[in-house]
Nucleic acid binder design. Structure first.
Lengths: 110, 110
DNA sequence: AGCTTGGGTTAGTCATGACTTACGGTAAGT
DNA sequence: ACTTACCGTAAGTCATGACTAACCCAAGCT
C-alpha cells in the first residue's frame, strides 16, 4: 500500500488520470466528476475505488453525497520510488555523454 | 513523448518495472535481463521496446549484442507531472488536518 | 563459405480490466 | 411512509495487452 505499484498502475489508465487531475482542481462528488468526463457514473465510482486503494484519493461522506479529494500518500510513494533511480539515471546520462565525447575524439567507444 | 502518459503506463506493468529496476543496477543486454527474470527473451525485447518509446531506456549496439541503460528523460517527465500536483496535495492534506482538529474540538465538521 | 550467437518481429492464445446496464442501499425532503 | 437523489456493487461484454513459439536478420568466428 505504501508500495508504489498500485499507485503507478492506477495512474496508468487515461480515464483514471482524468479523474485524478479533475480532483487536483478541487474536491468533487462522484456525480460531478462523471458529468465532466465521457464515462458513466458507475465507471467513475470504480475508478475512485482503485484510486482510493492506491492511496491517491481520500473520501468523506457529506450527506448523501461522497466528496473525494487528493491524498498526498500515493503521490509521495511514487516520488520516493522515482528518487531511488534519479541519481542512477543522472550517472548513466553523464557516463553516456562522456562516452560520446570519447567516441567523437577517438571514433570508437569502449 | 515528453508526455508522461507513456512513461506511466509503461511502468504500470510489474515485469516492465522488473526490467527497469534491473537496469538501475547497471546496463545490461537483452539476454542478461531475460536470464534474471521469469520471462522469455522475446518478452523482454518487447518490454524494452515500450520502455524505449516511453523515453525510459536507451540502447546502443555493441557487436551483435544490444546494451540497454536507463534514460533520465522519461523519469523527468513523470517527476514534472507529479510536481504539478504536489502543492495541491499538500494543501488538501493541510485542510484535512485542520478539519480534523475542528472535528475533534467540536465533534463535527464543516 | 558455413556455423553460431544474440535480437527483433509475427502470429496466435489467454488473462486482465474498462465499461455499461441493472439492481440494492442509505440519507434527506415531502 | 413514500419519494427522490446520490452512490456502490454485480453481471456480462468487449477490447487491450502480456506471453510463448517460430521465424528472420545481422554480426562475429572457423
Amino acid at each position: 500500500m505504501t508500495n508504489p505499484s498500485f499507485a503507478l498502475s492506477a495512474l496508468a489508465d487515461p480515464t483514471r488520470r482524468g479523474v485524478f487531475e479533475r480532483l487536483a482542481s478541487g474536491s468533487a462528488s462522484v456525480g460531478e466528476i462523471a458529468a465532466e468526463l465521457p464515462v458513466s457514473r458507475p465507471a467513475v465510482s470504480q475508478h475512485l475505488k482503485i484510486l482510493k486503494e492506491a492511496g491517491l484519493v481520500l473520501d468523506r461522506a457529506e450527506g448523501t453525497r461522497r466528496v473525494y479529494q487528493i491524498d498526498p500518500a500515493g503521490l509521495g510513494a511514487i516520488r520516493a520510488w522515482l528518487d531511488q533511480f534519479w541519481a542512477i539515471a543522472l550517472d548513466a546520462f553523464k557516463a553516456k555523454a562522456e562516452g560520446e565525447e570519447i567516441a567523437a575524439r577517438k571514433g570508437k567507444h569502449k
